[in-house]
Design a protein around this nucleic acid. Structure first.
Lengths: 224, 224, 224, 224
DNA sequence: CATGAATGAGTGTTCATTCAT
DNA sequence: GATGAATGAACACTCATTCAT
């Protein structure tokens, strides 16, 4: 966790540092990310960053577990909350919101995805695992509830459902989205104007297709 | 590509080097992987590796584009080729084979997966992208053919199908498999005996569930 | 020397700071001791310590030349003053008192010993040397007086006698004591309950042996 | 232990590095000693020192456990071996040799003494303790043998005798010697010409006094 | 063809001290 | 009188790559 010092910083300075940290850590895996680069870009002394955080891992952990979620929530709070009567309508609404979030905040999205990619780095493993398990558990509960309500096939294993939503679906949509944009996540991060290439209707179409696939597959609904 | 000198090496020496390179690169992302560690474990001179390869990226690229596929093919050649009359039977057979390959060769599987994870490292991006596109194209063709044969829904976008098979499905199965094993990819690599914890029938069950999901979702078949 | 502000401090705050400074400087040689650690443990501002002392060396010097002696005297004042008619009885009594002081106040004892160990640190050399010479001079006087009284051999060089008492004897007893405790000075500081392992009679025995050695050696008394 | 690389170095280069390392580590306690300073003075690259040694502790450990003893033995080998029929004659001869060694090689002597001074530094504690125990054990054996031969008082505890020889005596003679030289160990190290101030007969006189003291104290011999 | 010593920029981290508030 | 943010030099250590032998 950051030290008090950090929160006592003038708003704009703190924001600049956070912004640069987000840039640094979203562009490179933890080990390659460099505090030196952050401080030099921020125009502060090397020692200063250690007035704010215990060490590199502390800054990284705070960014992933506190600041990213906070910013994510702030962004979602501005939008109309996704509504949906049933599981699939809600899912569709949320996928929409999720992809739009990723397009508007590719760096935050990248930080969120990093957590879900395998890592062998002992310094971050614990952080990643904690966040991953929290997400998995939440998704499991959502799926279990939908099964209970009869919206999903009774024999569906909620853990597998969570794997699907957290892993497979995210991966599928990410790939599809960046493929349509013609760039990788990283390339998009430094050129987010490319979002214009992806018409809103393309996005709608993609999500509809995927949700339709799930509707048939997960609920066993008959083909319309 | 390796230099001639590399192929002139005595079989066992070359094999030892390759083996250690596979270990090194499968355990750490490209940047963290260390040539120093490889040569010192191989008991060869630091300079020697530069007699065999241009540089780190050259070794890495060769490993991913040549050696890993070669070893993968060799492994599959020993097994009965997966048979299947229709798309889904074949898919099921191939998923089986794929997961068993991953359990038997976690390091090669990890190398293969690395290619599909996003990277911002200029030294390896080109390698990853080339391999990724090749895979995507192959999958697109498979899906397109199945659509043509009427085995998959006509309105299914083959590119999206490829995203699903290359990305979503791989991710889903990986997550589910390692979740059932109770370890991460990396942890499993250094303790592959854990495979025993995953009974063959668990695996069968998992794949059947997933394929059933796809059968309903992709083909729109009626619920049995 | 501390500034006025330091002595204007509320008693308990000042005491807390002194206590923590004693801990810090007794556990590490001057250079490794950290003002940062002291202030953070004391819960005061970094700058405050510079309101009380000129700098690190000032605090250290005051601790060694003023506070440690003050506390040592206070401790001895509580005990009956060591009595003894002759040099050796008095020496024996004082060694007793000294070792018991060290067992009861290992940190103060350590600070005292530090002064006598050689150092190349320009920031503290002057302090150490001043204290060392004062001690040496005092001991020289004590020995000279005993020689004058005929209690010690006439040909004994008082300076050498002082070296013996200040250096050799202290070192010998320290080594013997900590050897019997089975720990180093530093280990004992953080686990002073170990003193129980050293029975009072062990201590008596040890001192008697050493004093007997000196009695024979310094006075040339005949073997009993 | 040093790596092979180190021993493959041209004699003069290796010697220069060792010499500078001896200087560095003899002038400052382990923590303050700086590899950077060594390499920059040696005119070699920062990384080179890590071709020779695993790390700072490795270099330090080798210096203390291998190189210092080696040089000490080499120095003694050139001199006539100290002879002595009885314990005290031998002791006297060895003290002579020891002090002359210290005067001729103040840095090596300082390294040797460092081992015997208390330290709280976890990185070096093990090294120091190992060397210390070896010395203590040797001295204990020497004393026990002399007791057995009846040269020392029967009731003398050999452990205490070892404490005396390793600790008290060394400290006493060091203090006396540097006092007579009018400098500290460290000051002498950078100005060894001062040895001339100490006439050979002063040294003789000092040792004779000390040995006489011990002769009376340890053996209980009658005053001549 | 093998060797292995040399390089030097890069990393995270610590700390006494200053000074505006 | 107290505060605490800022500083920047210093440290140990790593690594891909070069090149003379």
């Amino acid at each position: 966790m950051p030290k008090e010092t950090f929160f006592n910083l003038p708003e704009d300075k703190r924001e600049r540092i956070v912004q640069l940290a987000i840039e640094e850590f979203s562009e490179r895996p933890y080990r390659q990310a460099s505090l030196s680069r952050i401080v030099s870009r921020a125009g502060i002394a090397k020692g200063s960053i250690y007035q704010y955080f215990d060490n590199k891992a502390d800054l990284y952990g705070w960014l992933l577990t506190e600041e990213t979620p906070r910013r994510k929530l702030a962004w979602f709070a501005e939008k109309a909350p996704p509504e949906g009567k049933d599981f699939f309508s809600l899912l569709e609404a949320q996928l929409h919101a999720g992809l739009r979030f990723g397009l508007a905040n590719p760096r935050l999205a990248r930080l969120g995805d990093m957590v879900l990619e395998p890592t062998n780095d002992p310094e971050v493993r614990e952080i990643h695992e904690r966040l991953q398990q929290a997400g998995q558990e939440m998704m499991r509960a959502v799926v279990a509830a939908a099964v209970a309500r009869g919206e999903l096939r009774a024999e569906l294993d909620p853990e597998l459902g969570a794997d699907l939503l957290m892993g497979g679906l995210r991966e599928l949509l990410n790939r599809a989205m960046y493929r349509k944009l013609g760039v990788s996540t990283y390339a998009y991060m430094s050129d987010p104007d490319r979002a214009d290439r992806l018409s809103a209707c393309d996005l709608d179409q993609m999500i509809r297709e995927v949700v339709q696939l799930l509707r048939l597959g997960l609920a066993g609904e008959e083909r319309p």
